[in-house]
Write a protein that binds this DNA or RNA. Structure first.
Lengths: 366, 366
DNA sequence: GAAAATTTAGCAACAGCGTTGCGTAATAGG
DNA sequence: CCTATTACGCAACGCTGTTGCTAAATTTTC
């Protein structure tokens, strides 16, 4: 995730994060579980477990007596040892959630945002919402930070909203800096769809492979999880999946091209032909599978969830019949496990991921 | 690249690889260059440089006297300290190249392969070609291995050719194992397009961002370089970019779907309308940019190079006009710097990359 | 010309990582 | 009660990058 120099402190953090990922993936685990999962020696795992226990991130949960020999100590993640708040900023609403270390959602609240809201509007709404959460719950230093998932284009690295689509007052706004000052907490800013796919990855721990989260909510976007991290592209602009052409002679799209997935889909949906809309989306999904060979397709977004049965059926059918040689080329298709909370929850999990997730080792660009 | 446990030996290899990447990126460098590029302390860099010099991978190339103070020692990569052989296995030809540590091509030879050649045919051709290279050149232990770039589907991790498209006799062939035994050298097997994009990334060192290599050669494929490594997908099947639908009502493709980029493109090309074929390809490229937000688009493949001017112009124009907000969203478009050698050379560089490249840290899958 | 300033380079001691070797604790079975 | 088996951790170790400090080589200044 974050840029790191490769010194011994990196090793410590990395191996700790591996154990945490195991703890997130399974309900309980023991030392031998981690040994086989990570390839570390038992002694090294003991040391890591001791450190994590001291930090209160994991705890022992009894012993396992499998038969002969000394019983193994069973450990489990302490979900309420750390929390993060996630925000999903849409065009007219702000959704706030409280998420624990295991990726479970504790609070969820939606509040309206004024038409053409300004950065100040948003900051106040964020503050009010977070205050509401922390009145009937005492963070006691367990609050890691705030994640914001928002429509792009934006600059994830510098925490800058470049030009939020369809919102005035949002040109080159340094939202991360502003929110950090206003809220007094670390803030993480990312595209909505990227936050969403992080939610699925975080909850599934180390076993989650390459994936896309498809979001249909007025527009169509895709969040990518590739090679163990979120894929944001060269300018945090990956995911404009709705603006890929699927019909060369199709109707003109707002983006200027003809036959984008989004226009073709929306025309069908507006005409009430949900079955066709879903089939069009499915064509796009298969395009992604052909291009990127993904292990998971997750479906989300208000407009999709409204007809989730139709969409799930269409995408599943296309994935199973339109990709050749399906015997070894398996891809699972599912609705998001978090429903309408997925973006906000994912934004929160990005904060947790930055601190407790398995870090990538990103060489500097200089 | 390869799966590693995060111990101190990993640190050594990682930081050494960072310095090597610097050496590949610039003609010469000094200690302070590496310090700013990696974030390591000067002392640590000195140690790394000492180790690399002892291994003969880099050497001092004089001093730099910039003004006041003790002159800095200037270092450079020793390109001929290590070599790798790359093979591009196409339907009717085998191309073999010799590549040095800097990614420069020294030998290049094409030999025909019999129609419907068998694994044995290929092994003999490989052996003969490699013998020809090593007769007038003495490897003296500097030969790192052999990389094979081939049409898929295949299984990169297990070195297995699953079902090479359009080739009989190639179902579940353990090519890596066979070639390793037959040649007595380490062998690396990958999809042709993935090998190709590795060539571009290796030669550009640490400054190369997210990229796609588009290859038009009977079929259309795309090799992806994302987040500092090759993206192969969940089953080494990423890159089937030619089989993405761009025309919902288009002609039926061999893959069973309608209006795939490949059919639409090929129909135009076969009709002699190269300009239209190039425009169709460009639509697909813009689709990729919208989806993945890439920094580089590299064009390659025999059928494309035959009309390289037309293709380059069409793709450049589309990239610059059809992607909105081009001021900060910059993507460079270029023809492959290696021409027809790119796949074979990239296969060779994958071998070098595995040994001397910046390793990724891939957690085990459970 | 000699001293001061500046930059580079490396030796030596150090803290911290995972590893190795080996002893100890806790259980079941004979 | 003894033995086999399994789990666990202390202690020593090798190795990493880091820190503190000294030495070397050059230009600038007096």
């Amino acid at each position: 995730m974050t840029r790191t120099t490769a010194d011994v402190t990196f090793l410590r953090g990395y191996n700790q994060a591996l154990v945490m990922a195991v703890g997130r993936t399974v309900p309980t685990f023991e030392r031998s579980t981690v040994v086989t999962a990570t390839g570390l020696t038992p002694q090294a795992v003991s040391k890591v477990i001791a450190r994590l226990t001291a930090d209160g991130l994991i705890r022992s949960a009894g012993v396992r007596r499998p038969g002969i020999g000394k019983p193994a100590v069973v450990y489990e993640l302490v979900p309420d040892s750390r929390y993060a708040i996630g925000a999903h900023v849409a065009r007219r609403t702000l959704r706030l959630v409280l998420v624990d270390l295991a990726g479970r959602v504790h609070h969820s609240a939606v509040s309206p945002l004024p038409r053409d809201f300004t950065p100040e509007h948003l900051l106040h709404a964020l503050r009010a919402g977070i205050d509401a959460i922390t009145t009937d719950w005492e963070p006691r230093g367990r609050l890691t930070g705030v994640g914001i998932g928002m429509i792009g284009p934006l600059d994830h690295e510098n925490g800058l909203v470049r030009d939020a689509h369809g919102l005035r007052h949002w040109h080159d706004v340094p939202l991360r800096k502003l929110a950090q000052a206003h809220l007094g907490l670390p803030v993480h800013l990312d595209k909505d769809v990227t936050a969403g796919v992080t939610a699925e990855a975080w909850r599934r721990g180390g076993t989650f492979g390459d994936a896309v989260l498809i979001m249909v909510e007025s527009g169509i976007g895709g969040g990518f999880w590739l090679g163990g991290t979120a894929h944001r592209g060269a300018h945090t602009n990956a995911g404009e999946f709705g603006h890929t052409v699927v019909d060369l002679d199709g109707p003109r799209c707002v983006c200027g091209r003809h036959g984008c997935l989004e226009v073709v889909h929306n025309r069908a949906a507006e005409a009430g032909d949900i079955a066709r809309a879903a089939r069009v989306l499915a064509v796009g999904v298969v395009n992604l599978l052909q291009t990127l060979d993904l292990a998971h397709v997750v479906l989300a977004g208000a407009d999709l969830l409204r007809h989730q049965g139709a969409y799930l059926a269409a995408v599943e059918e296309a994935v199973h019949t339109q990709v050749p040689r399906a015997d070894w080329l398996v891809t699972d298709v599912a609705l998001s496990s978090l429903g309408a909370d997925v973006i906000a929850a994912g934004a929160a999990m990005q904060v947790l991921d930055r601190q407790y997730g398995v870090p990538g080792l990103i060489p500097r660009q200089g």
